[in-house]
Design a protein around this nucleic acid. Structure first.
Lengths: 173, 173
DNA sequence: TGGAGCATGTAATGAGTTACATGATTGG
DNA sequence: CCAATCATGTAACTCATTACATGCTCCA
């Protein structure tokens, strides 16, 4: 029961009923996509694997072989066990930092371009997070979900601060 | 030429001469390990692949089949091309955030334990980064390398701020 | 009704992790 | 010189990404 599989069970639990693969792809993307990326292929693989192990039950296939999945009692227990275990440390893989680290090999101006492009992306993401947070606050959403969003806000603010504080030596290399 | 392979070439470039697989594992761990994890197996696989493609040249095997690798002209060009290309976005996978998001399924107190354990880890990491930064500043190290370290500092500060600002509803769930 | 475009699911490739085997090294 | 321990390299496996095929759907 890895983190991706457990998350799928958790999303099925939260949504009460049964969801198909594509439903789960969409749901996962919006709910946990900002700090736990996953692709269609992963979802289908995990669903098949979980169903084979009896943690999920597959309903009758609908259009285009779409099977709705529901959580079994065994699956629920496995999810709760995963949830209560000590979570491993986060992993960050930030290609831009590699580029910055090797920055002295770049032609003049190139790094500045990359940095301002990245800065724009992060500025936009921060705006989106803040907007979403305001909406969730209005709607009185789950405090746990808002806490994950809050991480996103803090993270993006940190990235932007980092950009802002880069020495000219680096920024205009 | 993926990011891991390119980084290995870059490290070989920076170190001037030729390094063996184990040397590169060590170097990579200390220089880029904080934002680009890689394992021995990856290193050896990439080295073999890069040598097969002529981007690296393998020297004569020393003790225990250890071959020293050096960068070829082709390899250097490939590295520079990778470096100048637009870097893809970072990926973050933070298991603790998954757990927080599903926090309402946790027994009372469990989340608080996880959070304080994680907080201790991040506090320690921040301390280590600051110490290292002070040393690099004294030694007048490469500004680009210090910039990557600065990211680490900003990131850890953000994580700690996030912890500190979590509502009691979440922290003491 | 038919075909363009899109959504869903699958297969093949690539990257990352874990676990293992074997050869050095060092201290007794 | 022998044995315990550690370092180095390899292989098997899991996870993730990319590219593909096929079947809906919706509008002309």
């Amino acid at each position: 029961v890895n983190a991706t599989a457990a998350s799928l069970i958790g999303l099925l639990e939260s949504c009460g009923g049964s969801l198909t693969g594509a439903d789960l792809v969409r749901t996962a993307e919006t709910v946990i996509g900002d700090f736990w990326s996953l692709t269609r292929s992963q979802v289908y693989r995990e669903l098949a694997s979980l169903a084979a192990d009896g943690l999920l039950a597959a309903g009758p296939p609908g259009p285009r072989e779409a099977r709705p999945y529901t959580v079994t009692a065994v699956g629920r227990d496995a999810f709760l066990a995963w949830l209560a275990a000590d979570p491993p440390a986060e992993t960050i893989r930030f290609p831009l930092l590699l580029v910055v680290g090797f920055g002295r090999h770049l032609p003049p101006g190139r790094l500045a371009d990359m940095l301002s492009a990245a800065e724009a992306v992060h500025r936009k993401r921060l705006g989106g997070y803040r907007e979403l947070d305001a909406r969730l606050a209005r709607e009185g959403a789950d405090a746990f979900q808002r806490a994950t969003l809050s991480f996103g806000v803090h993270y993006e603010e940190a990235v932007l601060r980092w950009f802002a504080e880069l020495p000219a030596e680096v920024r205009d290399a």
